[in-house]
């Protein structure tokens, strides 16, 4: 993990700032319960596990259950398991060392009513000095407030929580599909934004890439294109496409909505 450049990761109502060379290798679950693991070019990885609970009092039991699993693994690897924990104001900070080593924290967030496990994990030779910096950037958000998702260059926000339906991560393209009551949206991020816009024209490219039918596409300025479809069965549709020259990317949001509060605005795509 290289600490030079950093990038925010916002997912399922929490955010953490990680070194830029960290990439999610496993994203499981939903807002109630889930797991994220980030890999790096080296052997150091970071993981976040979360679970909604109404009884946060048994943090230590959860930690000991985790340690028992690690002890079993260490025994199989012929290593001794050593652990060290400290109760803090907000939870339990711990370290362990066996076939690998890790530094982490287990705590309850009263903002969102979830228990979080944060852990930086590496080989025995690796330094875990970055843990403090990473864990200090961790925030969980109010489940009733605005919802922001940031992953692999895609950054999109919504006025209220949405549910993630599908995700596609490809080289040069990140696509997330969301839903809420009376709302469906596809948010995408495309690399080589300037090259795509120069070669095809932003409006033409957006019409083809997002399958926007008809002539209803309009360029609001050289770097912004909007498309509005005809309402059907009470559903309105709107697409916003923005070329971000600073990061050479195109951010696009294509949404169908019933109520006006879900009508996408440009600031939903502002970083």
């Amino acid at each position: 993990m290289s600490p030079e450049k950093q990038a925010a990761f916002r997912w399922q109502g929490f955010e953490v700032v990680l070194p830029e060379d960290c990439a999610p290798v496993s994203l499981i679950g939903d807002r109630r319960e889930g797991y994220c693991r980030f890999g790096s070019p080296g052997s150091v990885g970071f993981q976040v596990r979360w679970k909604e609970t109404k009884h946060p009092g048994r943090l230590k039991d959860s930690l000991f259950a985790y340690f028992r699993i690690l002890q079993r693994e260490a025994r199989k690897a012929g290593k001794t398991f050593e652990s060290d924990l400290e109760e803090t104001d907000c939870g339990i900070a711990y370290r362990w060392r066996a076939h690998a080593k890790a530094q982490g924290q287990l705590f309850y967030s009263s903002i969102c009513g979830r228990v979080f496990f944060l852990e930086l994990l590496g080989d025995r030779k690796d330094s875990l000095a970055l843990y403090r910096r990473i864990s200090s950037t961790f925030r969980s958000s109010d489940p009733a407030g605005p919802d922001r998702w940031t992953v692999l260059g895609l950054d999109v926000r919504f006025p209220a929580p949405v549910q993630l339906e599908k995700r596609t991560f490809q080289a040069g393209r990140t696509l997330l599909e969301f839903s809420a009551k009376g709302f469906r949206a596809q948010a995408s991020r495309w690399g080589f934004g300037e090259q795509l816009a120069e070669r095809h024209g932003l409006a033409e490219w957006a019409a083809a890439a997002l399958a926007l039918p008809g002539p209803a596409i309009r360029a609001e300025d050289p770097d912004r294109v909007a498309w509005e479809g005809k309402p059907r069965f009470g559903w309105n549709s709107l697409a916003l496409v923005r070329l971000d020259r600073d990061q050479n990317r195109i951010l696009a949001l294509k949404a169908s909505y019933r109520k006006p509060q879900w009508r996408p605005e440009w600031d939903w795509l502002e970083s």
């Binding site: 990038a7 830029e20 080289a171 690399g191 050479n248």
Partner: peptide, 15 residues
């Protein structure tokens, strides 16, 4: 040259 992130550049270049 293309203002890419490391992860993205590595993935695209590898492919």
């Amino acid at each position: 040259h293309y203002k890419m992130s490391r992860v993205e550049a590595d993935a695209a270049l590898g492919a």
